[in-house]
Design a binder for these strands. Structure first.
Length: 553
RNA sequence: UGCCUGAUAGUAUAAUGGUAGUACGACGGUUUUUGGUACCGUUUGUCUAGGUUCGAAUCCUGGUCGGGCAACCA
C-alpha cells in the first residue's frame, strides 16, 4: 500500500531538516511535563506528537520533568505521569529532570554574568513589573542594571549560599528594556526560594525560571525539535537568545495549537480545582479529561492514539467536538468488546405459556464483529425475565418496534414473544408484562416463519446477578465553560453521574475482567470500575451506543 | 495605541500557482436476531476588498475578525 498521507507542518519541518542533513539526520524530541498535576487528553496530543515523530523518523524521545518550581511539584505527579505515558503505549529513551541540570544551569548563569549579560536586581516584584513598562511604552532601567560584573558574581554566589531571604534579589538577563517583545525586557533567570525540592531536597535555595531552564535543558540533551504549544511563541526569541549567548547546542522550538474539547476543561489549574473542591471523586474520576480518568472510564490507549491522529496538528486555535473522541472509542470497542446482556431499569416480563420451573440454556456469541464470534457463553432462560422498562409502552406509537399489547419482539438469542397484557401497581405504574412465546421460534432453530422488527435484551429473574452501574454524562452543560460569563464551575452538569445500584446482569458477567470493555447489548460499552469487588460488582459506562432511533411526534 | 500569531463546510484537517478533497456530525437509503455494526447516497466551505497571473485557498497590498504577550508559574 502506498497510500499517500499528507504531512502536518511539523513533519514537513522535520523532513526538510533531514533532507538538508541537519544534525546528521538525527531526530530527538522530548515530552516535558511539569509534575504539578495529572496528564490530560491535551497532553496525550503532545505525547503522540513527540513520540510519534520520533517513531516515524527513527529517532528517540526523552521524558523530561520540568521541575524548576519546588513549591508546586510532587513525586506523586511524577509517578502518575510515567504511568500514563507508558499506558498510552510509548517508551522514552531517557527519564530526565530539569533539576538534574541545576549545577550546569548555575554555571551557565555565571557565564552570562561574566559576559556582562546578566545582573542581580534588588527590586521587589512590584518594582520590576512597573519598570518593565507596558506593551506600548518602553521600560526604564534601574540602578542595579549597571552593577559591575564582579559585584554581580559575588551577589549571585551569595544568593546561592542562602544569604538572602525569598524575594530579596533576582538574577536578570540584560537584554533590552525597550524591546517590543515583553519577554526580552530583562527577563528573570533565577529567583530565591527557600523551599524543599522533591528531588534535590534542600541543596538549592535559588531556582531557575522556565526561560532559563527549558531551552538549556533541550540543548544539554541535544534535542533537535523542541515542540510546545502556541502560548510559548513569544518566548522563542528568548529561547534562541540564551542558546546563542551561551554558545550551546542549537535546539529549535516549534509551536502547535493546544487541544480544546467541547464540554470539558483542559487546564491543570481547573482540573485541580474540581478535585480539591470535590466536584469529582479525584483526578481519575471517569468524568475527568485526564488520561487516568479516561482509562478508568473504559477508554483504551489505542482509541486515544487514534483520536490524536484524527484531530491533526496545526497552528490555528481549535475546539474539537467530544463526539470525535466518542467515535474513536466506539470504533475500537465495537471490534473488541464482548457482548453481554444487562437490564438497567428493570420491569418483569412473565411468559404465561412457559412451564413454571423450566429452564433452558441459550447460547450467545461473544463478538459478532469477529469471524466465529470469538466463542460464546451460555445464557439461562426461564418463565420470568427482566427486561428494560423503556422497551414497553402502554400506547406505542406507529414505529415502536418493541413491546405493547399485541406487539411481537424477538428476545435476543431466545424466542419470539407476543405481548398479551400487563398489570399496574397501586400507583398506576406498570409492574408486570404478560407474554406468550412461540416455541418454534427458538434462536438458531426457528421454523416459525415469523419475522419481527425488534429484538430486545433480557435477563432471567432467577439467574440474574446484580451490579451497580454508573452512567456518566458530560461534566459541563455548555460547550466551552472557560469562555462563559463568570466561574467555569457555574456550568457543571448536575446530572453528570447517575448511579443505578441494582441493575441485573447475566450470570456470566461475574467473570468480567478488569480493564476489559464489554458491550451491554443495546445499552453501551461498560467496564469494571476500580472499586468493583466480587461481592459488589461496579460497572462504569464508557460511552453509549449511537442511537439512530429518533422519536417522532 | 505596541509586538507576535492565525483565518478552508457545523467541527477538525488536506490541497505547497493548475478539478477545493478527507474524516467526524447531520440527513436519506440497503442489510441486520443490538433502532448497534457494515455498506451506499445527499448536504454545507476558501473572512473581506483590490492587485499580480492564462490560471489564486495558495503570491502582493489594505481591511475585518479570533488567539497570545506586561507571573519571583510552566
Amino acid at each position: 500500500m502506498s497510500e499517500e498521507r499528507s504531512l502536518n507542518f511539523i513533519e514537513e519541518i522535520v523532513e526538510e531538516d533531514i533532507r538538508a542533513g541537519k544534525h546528521g539526520g538525527r531526530v530527538l524530541t522530548r515530552f516535558p511535563p511539569e509534575p504539578n498535576g495529572y496528564l490530560h487528553i491535551g497532553h496525550a496530543k503532545a505525547i503522540c506528537l513527540n513520540f510519534g515523530l520520533a517513531q516515524k523518523y527513527n529517532g528517540k524521545t526523552n521524558l523530561r520533568f520540568d521541575d524548576t518550581n519546588p513549591t508546586k511539584e510532587e513525586t506523586e505527579y511524577v509517578d502518575s505521569i510515567k504511568e500514563d505515558v507508558k499506558w498510552l503505549g510509548f517508551e522514552w529513551a531517557e527519564e530526565l529532570y530539569a533539576s538534574d541540570y541545576f549545577d550546569q544551569l548555575y554555571d551557565f548563569a555565571v557565564k552570562l554574568i561574566g559576559k556582562g549579560l546578566a545582573y542581580v536586581d534588588d527590586s521587589s516584584a512590584e518594582e520590576i513589573a512597573a519598570q518593565k513598562g507596558t506593551p506600548t511604552e518602553p521600560g526604564t532601567p534601574n540602578q542595579y542594571r549597571s552593577r559591575s560584573i564582579e559585584e554581580n558574581l559575588q551577589l549571585f554566589a551569595e544568593m546561592k549560599d542562602g544569604k538572602y531571604p525569598d524575594g530579596a534579589k533576582v538574577l536578570r538577563a540584560k537584554i533590552d528594556l525597550a524591546a517590543p517583545n515583553m519577554h526580552l525586557r530583562d527577563p528573570l533567570m533565577y529567583r530565591i526560594k527557600h523551599a524543599h525540592h522533591h528531588r534535590t531536597g534542600d541543596k538549592w535555595c535559588i531556582y531557575p525560571m522556565y526561560d532559563f531552564a527549558h531551552g538549556q535543558s533541550d540543548a544539554i540533551e541535544q534535542i533537535t525539535h523542541s515542540i510546545c504549544t502556541l502560548e510559548f511563541v513569544p518566548h522563542r526569541a528568548l529561547y534562541d537568545w540564551f542558546i546563542e549567548q551561551l554558545e550551546i547546542f542549537p535546539s529549535k522550538q516549534y509551536e502547535f495549537a493546544r487541544l480544546n474539547m467541547t464540554y470539558t476543561v483542559m487546564s491543570k489549574r481547573k482540573l485541580m480545582q474540581l478535585v480539591n473542591e470535590n466536584h469529582v471523586e479525584g483526578w481519575d474520576d471517569p468524568r475527568m479529561s485526564t488520561i487516568s480518568g479516561l482509562r478508568r472510564r473504559g477508554y483504551t490507549a489505542a482509541s486515544i492514539r487514534e483520536f490524536c491522529e484524527r484531530i491533526g496538528v496545526a497552528k490555528r486555535e481549535n475546539m474539537i467536538d467530544v463526539g470525535l473522541l466518542e467515535f474513536c472509542i466506539r470504533e475500537d470497542l465495537n471490534k473488541t468488546a464482548w457482548r453481554r446482556m444487562a437490564v438497567l431499569d428493570p420491569i418483569k416480563l412473565i411468559i404465561t405459556n412457559y412451564s413454571e420451573g423450566q429452564t433452558e440454556t441459550m447460547h450467545g456469541e461473544n463478538n459478532p464483529e469477529v469471524e466465529g464470534g470469538e466463542g460464546g457463553r451460555d445464557i439461562p432462560f426461564s418463565k420470568e425475565l427482566w427486561i428494560e422498562r423503556e422497551d414497553f409502552m402502554e400506547e406505542p406509537p406507529k414505529k415502536f418496534f418493541r413491546l405493547g399489547v399485541g406487539l411481537m419482539v424477538r428476545l435476543k438469542s431466545a424466542y419470539i414473544v407476543k405481548c398479551e397484557g400487563f398489570k399496574k401497581d397501586a400507583d398506576g405504574k406498570v409492574s408486570e408484562i404478560y407474554c406468550t412465546y412461540i416455541p418454534e421460534s427458538k434462536s438458531g432453530d426457528d421454523t416459525s416463519g415469523i419475522h419481527v422488527k425488534g429484538t430486545i435484551h433480557w435477563v432471567s429473574v432467577q439467574h440474574a446477578k446484580t451490579a451497580e452501574v454508573r452512567l456518566y454524562d458530560r461534566l459541563f452543560k455548555v460547550e466551552d465553560p472557560s469562555s462563559e460569563e463568570g466561574d467555569f464551575k457555574d456550568y457543571l452538569n448536575p446530572d453528570s453521574l447517575q448511579i443505578l445500584p441494582n441493575a441485573y446482569i447475566e450470570p456470566d458477567m461475574v467473570n468480567a475482567l478488569p480493564g476489559k470493555g464489554y458491550q451491554f447489548i443495546r445499552k453501551g460499552y461498560f467496564t469494571l470500575d476500580k472499586h468493583s469487588t466480587p461481592d459488589k460488582l461496579v460497572f462504569n459506562r464508557t460511552v453509549t451506543l449511537k442511537d439512530g432511533w429518533v422519536k417522532k411526534g
